[in-house]
Each structure stands twice: as C-alpha cells, then as structure tokens.
Design a binder for these strands. Structure first.
Lengths: 128, 128
DNA sequence: ATAGCTGCAAACGGTTTGCCTCACA
DNA sequence: TGTGAGGCAAACCGTTTGCAGCTAT
C-alpha cells in the first residue's frame, strides 16, 4: 500500500469533516486537488476502512457518513428533522451487557445510529 | 383515499413477509397480480406509512425493510454475516429512560437497528 | 518490467418523477 | 366530469465495475 497524495487528502477530509458522505468528502478533497475522482474516494474509503482508520455509519436514508476510527460515540438521529446528536458510547454499557448475556450478540456501540425524536421536535409537537 | 386492490395486496404482502424490501413486496404482490408496477408499491408504502399502518427500518446497506406497525421489536444486525435477530423492545427501556432524561431524545425502539456481531460469528472468530 | 493506483465512462441497484390513461365517485 | 389511482418510461442518486494510461518501484 502506498500513501498517495489522494489517499492522504481523503483521510484528511474525513478527519476534518466528521460524519461526511463520500460526496462531501470528494468536494473537500477537490478544493485542493480538483481532478480527484469520486471513484478514488470510494476506493480509498474502502481501503481506509479495512485498515481500521475510518468507519462508516448509516444514519438512515441516503449516503452513509464516514468518521475517523477514534471518533467514538452514539448517533441519535431525529427522524422528524434529520438532526444528528451525539452521546457517549458508555450510555450503551448496560444494554450491551444485557444483549451479550441474553443473546450472545456483541454490540458495536460506535458504529451505531439510534432513531427517534429529538428534544426540539418533541417540543414543537407538543406546541401544536 | 380508496383501498384499491393494489393497496390491499401491498398491505397483505407486508403483513405476510415481515422485513421485506419494496422489491420483495412487489414480487409477492405480482404472484397474484402480475401487472402491478413497482412504482405503485413505492407509492403505496409511502401512503401506508403516513397512515401508520406500516413502518420501515434501515438495516444497514441496501434497501429498507417494511413491517406492519404492530410488529414491534429491536433488530440486531450482524455486520459480519448480515443475519438479523430480533429482541423485545423492552430491552431498551433503561436506555430509553436515560436518553430522555439526559438529552430529551425520545427513542423510537421499534424503528431501530443495532449493529454488532452475532453469537455465531463471535464463535467463528474465536475458533480461528 | 511490473505492480498497483488513478481517471473516465459506463453499468448498476434502488428510488422518484412526469406524463398519459383509466376508473370511479 | 373531474379527481385521483395506476402503469410505463425516463430521470435520478449513490455506488461499483471495466478498462486504459500512468507512476513509482
């Protein structure tokens, strides 16, 4: 494996943007290297993921978002407004232990999105 | 709104199949009404969802899966083999309360997929 | 010389749109 | 007779593939 300029730029972009889609990452990379193709971005993300340098999360519909691997937290996705909040993974410790004991399922807390309604939307709904 | 034959068939298919993609639902419908178009399936699913008769869940990559609304449980998606296990929503009660208290986020337990590694895959990994 | 990385274009899967036709209140 | 439901084809977005050219060993 060679750390080519393109790959470095993709990794930098993931680091800077946090939760960015391949499309957004590509745009960011193209600000310094306009000829970089989105195909390269996809291939690089796949590679970086195999190397455990980045990870991706499906936040519901649309494209997945990529983050650097150290970026560990749980995503709370509001299905009403689309906002994404983050909370520490430790909130899942109890559930994780429970699942493991009951079903043997090993929860991956950082690669995770929980859906529901965020506080803002809950308030808005109550004011109707 | 009119409960047309097509719409009834789509609803029946969702009920029978559980966790089916629009594509699968379409195939099921076409077994009794071969001319029904996938466009109609999409439009009907959207409609049924607005009426809270069905709901959809994103189980990771690929197409979402649809279930009838009463079908309430948490999906455990194994990111190694793709298997989907189900556990009762009550397992999330603690987390739900915690999230609500800490952040005001109202968790929708039934519209939810948790990712991780299933017991089978955990065992396989340990036997390497 | 060779392996492997890149760009481009084309194919792909899943979904949405526009439009025209049809059925039904 | 007018509103809305369905079918079809085309557009669409996100992603993957095949291939040809280039680059660094």
């Amino acid at each position: 494996m060679r750390m080519t300029p393109q790959r470095q730029l993709v990794l930098d972009a993931v680091r800077e943007l946090e939760h960015a889609t391949p499309e957004q990452i590509c745009q960011q990379v193209q600000r310094t290297a306009p000829t970089v193709n989105i195909t390269t971005v996809y291939r690089t993300l796949e590679l970086l993921e195999k190397l455990s340098l980045v990870r991706h999360t499906h936040l519901g519909h649309g494209a997945p978002t990529y983050s650097v691997d150290e970026h560990e937290h749980v995503h709370l996705v509001c299905h009403r407004c689309g906002r994404v909040n983050e909370v520490p993974c430790s909130l899942l410790d109890g559930l994780s232990a429970r699942l493991s004991a009951d079903t043997g399922f090993r929860l991956d807390a950082s690669h995770l999105a929980l859906s529901g309604t965020c506080q803002v939307c809950v308030n808005e709904e109550e004011n109707l």
